[in-house]
Design a protein around this nucleic acid. Structure first.
Lengths: 336, 336
DNA sequence: TCGAAAAATCTAAACGTTTACATTTAGGAT
DNA sequence: ATCCTAAATGTAAACGTTTAGATTTTTCGA
């Protein structure tokens, strides 16, 4: 059956005009039951499937939303994507997904392709917060939603997690347990999450009148290795901390590796809380306490935002969601 | 700039016909340098971006390939997808991704949508190995590549991993270390991976003349919980095994949880090898030995297969890739 | 039974490309 | 200058829908 029947074939077989067929395909009503039946039969008989591209051509909408993530293999994103997809399918939308490997160049390329393909909206965790390359999208009037990382030079809807608050909660927890020498392994200060989590750390210390000790601040880059080096560094620093806060999942992993190798006893000699839940958290002994983000929910909200924007283009103010992360206390913190 | 310039606007501005513009857009040559320059200028001036949907309409190809996976949050798939994407982008293809949550119903729905959208090819890890719902695709002449799970009732290109061999290698390793009471936690025997991994287990035992002891065979379902229960079961069974082979990553995780709780000392009292690498493998002590699959490569090959099939539709025989997994010996095996 | 209003159906144009084929132009040989 | 050929450019149809507006059919009250 290599030949693809078109709406015209259906019309012919059912002895009606293509307009009528179109009406029943899109069930717009205004077609007599008997005619409809005839058409439906014809459709089944021919195995007709309507061409989405012809439809998009006429309608000037593709029911597709583009998703851009920096790294599809980072477990955070598949969960977000799952949330988006779920909601999207419910509304008859489909997603086209691309991963930039944190490269702004690739990101720009993808943006261009997405425009060519006529996506109705874009959900993006950008590799370049300046957002200049996003301008193209805005020029075309394509709704954008930024997830996890804000976009500077444009007004776009965003769904972020309250990084400051999450870090604050974590560090406060450590303080309340009596810790005073609390270290942080930071993310890059050029990114919003990196900066904000550091801010939360400082805020907690301030609030409890603990002076900030620069030697307990290690600059990482969100990669596993820097977590590893961070832990090493802290272990051998002049003031050995009694607690560590790690700014993201990958660094947490590196950190734990180092602790094990150093035989620096987690939960006994050093307390630990990491930002973002990680699979290993409940495996290692003691179980890791973490700041956890509602990943699927983030995706769901993001979709809702583009969806709204697609359907009510006008007079929607910029909307910003700020979800509160949850502190999951497990076993890696000890009282002092 | 809400108005989208079309090829016609460009033609008008450059004072040529749309045919000529089309020629330079697709750089087909046969256009004088001076005309080309004029056209390129016009394009830039207007910010013209060609409509992929109009193009697809005429060309009857979308340069899109659909990917269907059972569970996007299972770490195996994002890696495969990354491999596909990488190669696809190189060839000017884009991917549209959907996750079925292991539901054949959703899968069928997605297949339908993919056809509507005119994907040029499909890469699928099916939730229903019978493959009856795939028939639709085949009817439309859309190339299909099955990944990780074979499809029964149709001839499609496949890229699988040699499950038998992988399991065989793992179990042989255990045997060579002196183990004789080797248990297996099986996957569902209704799935190819489940069956084949069990086969590999049996093959190794046979080869070394170790009788199969049914009480050391635990039936799991690839879910974490069944790994957990499996370990428990084996611990309390009349013949306690000295080694365990687990048939997939999730069950490995459950298993390790149980071992920890039982205080059944990994690498001392019981050796362990699991199918598929897991993130925790190198965290826990001792580090887990695993059978590891080349996930990105799988994706790359899968794309190559659809690509070939798209471009040389005729006379390509069915191709089957069978990648050999690699045994990664770490620390969870001990000599006896 | 007739006519008017309402409901159903049809006609044809449009969406933005690509491409076969027709036409024009350029430029060298005579 | 003229002609011829090859190169450059143009014309128009087609791809498969949706949809406004025109037309036909049905329905129903008088």
């Amino acid at each position: 059956m290599e030949y693809k029947p078109t709406i015209e074939d259906v019309a012919k077989l059912a002895n009606v005009s293509i307009a009528t067929v179109s009406r029943v395909i899109n069930n717009q009503g205004g077609v007599r039951k008997v005619t409809e039946d005839r058409i439906v039969n014809a459709i089944n008989e021919l195995g007709y499937i309507r061409s989405a591209v012809a439809r998009s051509m006429k309608r000037k909408e593709t029911n597709t939303i583009g998703i851009i993530v920096p790294d599809i293999t980072n477990p955070f994103f598949p969960h977000v994507v799952a949330g988006i997809e779920q909601k999207a399918r419910e509304k008859g939308y489909y997603t086209i997904l691309s991963s930039t490997n944190e490269s702004p160049i690739i990101e720009e390329e993808i943006v261009k392709i997405f425009i060519e393909r006529g996506v109705d909206g874009v959900i993006i965790t950008t590799a370049n917060e300046s957002g200049d390359h996003i301008k193209l999208l805005q020029d075309q009037g394509i709704p954008i939603v930024a997830v996890d990382r804000a976009i500077k030079n444009f007004e776009v809807d965003t769904v972020l997690v309250d990084n400051v608050n999450g870090a604050y909660q974590a560090v406060r927890q450590l303080i309340l347990q009596g810790h005073e020498k609390i270290a942080i392994i930071c993310g890059p200060q050029s990114t919003t999450p990196g900066r904000e989590r550091y801010l939360g750390y400082k805020k907690a210390l301030e609030e409890y009148n603990i002076p900030l000790d620069e030697s307990l601040v290690y600059q990482g880059d969100f990669m596993e290795n820097s977590g590893y080096r961070g832990a090493l560094h802290l272990f051998y620093s002049k003031v050995r901390p009694t607690a560590i806060f790690s700014s993201n999942n990958q660094m947490t992993i590196g950190c734990v590796k180092a602790l094990t190798e150093l035989d620096w006893k987690l939960g006994e000699e050093v307390s630990f809380i990491g930002f973002d839940d990680v699979e290993i958290a409940t495996f290692i002994k003691p179980k890791l306490s973490v700041v956890s983000r509602p990943m699927t929910t983030i995706g769901e909200i993001a979709f809702q935002l583009v969806y709204d924007r697609i359907h009510f283009k006008e007079n929607l103010p910029k909307r910003e969601y700020l979800l509160t992360p949850e502190l999951k206390i497990r076993e890696s913190c000890h009282k002092i």
